[in-house]
Design a protein around this nucleic acid. Structure first.
Lengths: 226, 226
DNA sequence: GATTCAATCAAACGGTTGTTTGAAACATAC
DNA sequence: GTATGTTTCAAACAACCGTTTGATTGAATC
């Protein structure tokens, strides 16, 4: 690890962020204590409060550091698609790929958080910590607006409600997968698949969500058949 | 609440289980303290340790009480389908419906946990608390084996690996939905849909997961195109 | 060289956690 | 009525939590 001059003696704040990032994704926010963080970062216990103010603020800090590059990339990918489409709708598959490719790029670049941050972000979306509920959204406001618009355009046969349902399902699958949550491991099934490699995940994930999103419209009044 | 003689003065252990069930789903396991539980159950603080031994054991107790009826129902639903199919594969849609119908039955029967338990169970599957990682599986061993076999039979064109991936994605969406985790609420999108009604969830969920599971086989060597 | 200011440190803060204790209350059996 | 065993109770337990304190360090400024 202490190879060349790679990251000889990093900034204290950065070391804290790195340690917190890894520990939050491993144990979750609440189960990660200040002592664990400062011990791993090899800094004094008081350093977190000195540099960030509080544990909650540190949590935010972990995200604000990484989120901008990710959202820029995702929006940029969509920009390119829409420019090439010249006003025509971009296919659902391309839209989903654009989003996941951004995540894959980050996952393969340790300097922008690598796979650890992708997993942490995904896990955070799923578990919805109250700490981030107000502070996070504005970071990706543009991203959401753009992708929502693009999918609505690609799926004109779906009304707003059904589109919301399906996007909800799709991103549930996406974030669970990227979070490394192999649900099947809970079941006795032996885990043949390596659910931790983001690229491999995307390979199987895209066809699944595309099929789900483009499925025939749910019959009106369905559910009344019970 | 204290209507007729409905549940006049419940057993202490039962009152604890009910309180814990509701609080765990509302705040999560770690964020729910013994004081919160005993206060809501209107019992003494020491009662939990007296009747259950520990907080972890109480967590297990909450599930063991409810899980057997649910799994029985799910297996029973599948039994009926397979009997009617007379050796022929049961369709993916029917299989998924069989599983969700069991959850819906529980959700509409307060005596077997109601919607609260369905949400708690789903949330627990997603978050995968270490406490339950060893104690839970044997409860639904049969259920998993039966459903895994049925889906494999219904989707013979998928190899074991791709089937595992897709089941993983499908159940990610299912449990997230039943957990009441509307991922979209995190995004600025105004929540038009009521993501808490299990029956409504199932209406939109079934077509989505069926389409995802029955999507064309992912091309071999996919992912190498990067 | 004295001053200033940000950074680090050991130590302690008040509060909450899950758990344990030993006495009191209760019901049941003899 | 006495004895027995179970359940409830207020109180305290040690351990950990996030945070604060005040002294100490080190480098930059005048």
């Amino acid at each position: 690890m202490n190879g060349l001059g790679e990251t000889r003696q990093l900034d204290t704040a950065t070391r804290i962020l790195d340690a917190a990032e890894a520990l939050f994704v491993e144990h979750g926010f609440e189960a990660t204590s200040m002592r664990m963080i400062t011990q791993r970062a090899e800094v004094n216990l008081a350093a977190v409060n000195y540099h960030f103010g509080s544990k909650d603020a540190l949590f935010q800090g972990v995200f604000t550091r990484r989120l901008t590059p990710l959202t820029q990339l995702a929006v940029q990918n969509l920009d390119r698609l829409e420019a090439a489409a010249q006003g025509e709708p971009v296919s659902v598959e391309r839209i989903m790929r654009a989003f996941m490719d951004a995540a894959l790029d980050i996952a393969h670049d340790p300097k922008r958080g690598g796979v650890i941050f992708v997993r942490l972000l995904s896990r955070t979306f799923i578990e919805a910590h109250p700490v981030l509920r107000e502070s996070l959204p504005w970071h990706y406001e543009e991203l959401v607006a753009r992708y929502a618009k693009a999918t609505a355009k690609a799926l004109p046969e779906l009304d707003a409600i059904e589109l919301q349902w399906r996007l909800n399902f799709a991103f549930s699958a996406i974030f669970n997968a990227f979070a490394g949550n192999n649900i099947l491991r809970l079941f006795v099934i032996d885990p043949v698949v390596n659910a931790r490699d983001p690229r491999l995940i995307a390979t199987y994930l895209v066809p699944f969500v595309v099929a789900g999103l483009t499925a025939p419209v749910t019959a009106k009044g369905a559910g009344s058949s019970f």
